[in-house]
Each structure stands twice: as C-alpha cells, then as structure tokens.
Design a protein around this nucleic acid. Sequence first.
DNA 1: GTCTATACGGAGATAGAC
DNA 2: GTCTATCTCCGTATAGAC
Lengths: 197, 197
Amino acid sequence: MPRVTEAHRDARRAQIRAAALRAFTAKGYQRASISDVVAESGLSAGAIYGHYEGKRALFAAVAEEVLSRRGTELEAAARDGVPPSPVEVLTLLMGGMTRDIQDNRVIVQLWAESTVDDMIHDVVQEVVSAIQGVLHGALRAWYATRPDLCAGDPDAAAELLLPVMLGLAQGYLVQRAMLDDFDPDRYLRSAAAVLPR
Amino acid sequence: MPRVTEAHRDARRAQIRAAALRAFTAKGYQRASISDVVAESGLSAGAIYGHYEGKRALFAAVAEEVLSRRGTELEAAARDGVPPSPVEVLTLLMGGMTRDIQDNRVIVQLWAESTVDDMIHDVVQEVVSAIQGVLHGALRAWYATRPDLCAGDPDAAAELLLPVMLGLAQGYLVQRAMLDDFDPDRYLRSAAAVLPR
DNA sequence: GTCTATACGGAGATAGAC
DNA sequence: GTCTATCTCCGTATAGAC
C-alpha cells in the first residue's frame, strides 16, 4: 500500500474533521448541517461522504480527537517533571479544552448527544474511561509525594478523589458554556479551597 | 375572569407539560417530536399549540418547572430544622432530581439546548441564578453554625464554596447521564471527602 | 476521489370544521 | 378549545458524470 496515498488520505480526513469542528462550534452540532461542513471544508458533499459515513460518525471522530488530546497532555505532564497537584491538573485540563475550542458549548452538546446516540455514546465512554485512568495515575503520583495526606496509601486516596476531580472538570465546562457571568478564576479558586494541597 | 375556566386552563397546561416531560425523557428532547407529545398527552396537535407556542416553549416551561422545584425544596429544607451541611445539600438536590425524572439525561440535553437556543438560555439562566441564591443562603446558614470553619465570616465562606457546590452537582448529573458504570454513592463519598463538614 | 444535482423522508406548524 | 388533515420546509444522503 503506497504510503504517499495513505498520508494524503489521512490529511484529507484531518482537513474534514477540522472543518466539522469549526462548523459544529459555530452553529452547534444539531444545527450545523452537512452543508455547513461542506462550506467550511471547501470540498463537496460527495467528498465528505467518501471519508465519513455521515454527520454522526464525523462528530464521533472529532470528539475522539479532542478528548484524547486531554489524556495525552495530562500523561505528558505527569510523566516529566514534578507530579502536578489536583488544582494544577484541573487547570491543565481546562486550559487544554479552551485552547482546542473557543467556548466549549460543543462539549456539552457532545455529552447530550452521547445520551441518545449509541455511536457517540461508545466513543465518549471509551475516551472518558481512558482519561480517568490517566487521571488516576496522575493523582496517585502526586499523593505519593504527600504521604501525610493519604495515610501512606496513594492509590486509595487517588481512587477516592477521582469522581470529584472529574465532576469539577465537568462542572467547569457546563458553567463556562451556560452561565453568562461565569468567572473561570473564581471557579478555580473555589476548587483550590476544597481540593487537597 | 371566571376562575373555574382559569383553573381548567392551568390543569390542561400542566397535563401537557407532564406529557412533554415524559416524551422528552423517553426519546430525548431533540428526537421527541410534537407527535410524541401529542400521543403521550392523549390530545391533538391543535390542542398543544393552543397552549404553547411550540416545542421550544414547551421545553422551556418544563425546565422552569423542574428546576424551580430544586430551589423550593432546598429553601424549605434550609428554613425549618438544622441547616444542612454541604454534603446534605448535595444529596438533597440530587435526590430531588432523581425523583422528578428517572434518569437525568434530559437535564444534560437541556444544558446543551441552552447553549444554542435563546429562549431556553434565558429560562435556564434565570432559574439557575435563583438556585444559586438559595444555595448561597443555605451554605451561609450552615457556616454560621460552624464559625471555626469560616473564620467568623459565613458569607464569604459560602461565596467561596458556591461554584464548587454547583459544579459538583452538575458533575453528578453529567456522570449519571453519561457513564455506564456511574456509582452515585461513590460520587457522594468522594464529595464528602473534600467538602467541609 | 470529487463534483453537481436531486430524491427522499420527516418534523414543525397551520387551516378550517366542529 | 379541540380535532383532522395537510402543507411546507429543510437536512441527509445518494446517483451519476467526470
């Protein structure tokens, strides 16, 4: 299999995903039509359908790409250097989201879609599980440096903190997407006040 | 204006809202059609449109009803009896949600819709603001009984905790709607480990 | 692989009788 | 106020040429 062709194919697919993300971000996933993606990509409907089965598959692919990056980033940060504290982990995750997509309304739309579309559900399920795994590892590493806080059992401490860490991240994203007067710094100060440090 | 007629009108509107909630819950807001609401209500399309402008207005009305109840419940709990602790407040709110709607997928769908539909946005915005107000009051009342935890300033302490309390509630709802293996008790234990008590 | 043009289906909303 | 029947729009997806 000629690798040039393969690379070209992947590049085109990436181009389509990028266009889809722009369209979904601008209009919202439900309201964005395939025509919007077409317009955004500079290609045609036929071209899109040649690479993705349809709008749902496109959303799944984009979601996989964006969410996976959070796991990758966190893993990298946890690997080299001092283990980040819970608040630093939260800040890192939220900063990454903001970097990838302007506002994060589309993330909330993704969650909603995952409650009703099986294809989306499966992708989100898988990637979020992966993120939880990485998150667990990061927290465990940090607790290991703070034996005073975990009674010598970093693993159990990380396990206990995990749902709240995920929940605080989700709360941040919901509020940022939904509330007119959301204040990111205030939210992080609030989180810092309750999280171990 | 004859009050019997007025009462009948309100009853019918409540009947329609209840039918809409069932339809939205069963199929998801986007996928539920007006026909579904019609079928669920036992009425006709014409009857529905005689009382509500359309699907969006219906969702807004249902959302207003369900969310407002959270504020009312919390206010009642905070008023009579011992001020509930943060974890108790969280448990109360989540219990109320579960009572009103089986799973809470439709809540996440509501948030998503609020990021893209102005009518929904305005309603959610208003009701969530009200809930935050009540929440603030409840937390302040609790802190007032625990001066050791707030350095004598219950108001500031409540203000600081507010975003996290809201975020933890939202995280609970997202995870419950989205994750196959969500464990409510585990989430609450996790929250109890970080929240002041 | 990609384009243009179009078929198909479904959903929200309305008309008009009762 | 409510019903039946229907209209109209719009979005997804495909057909067929290049």
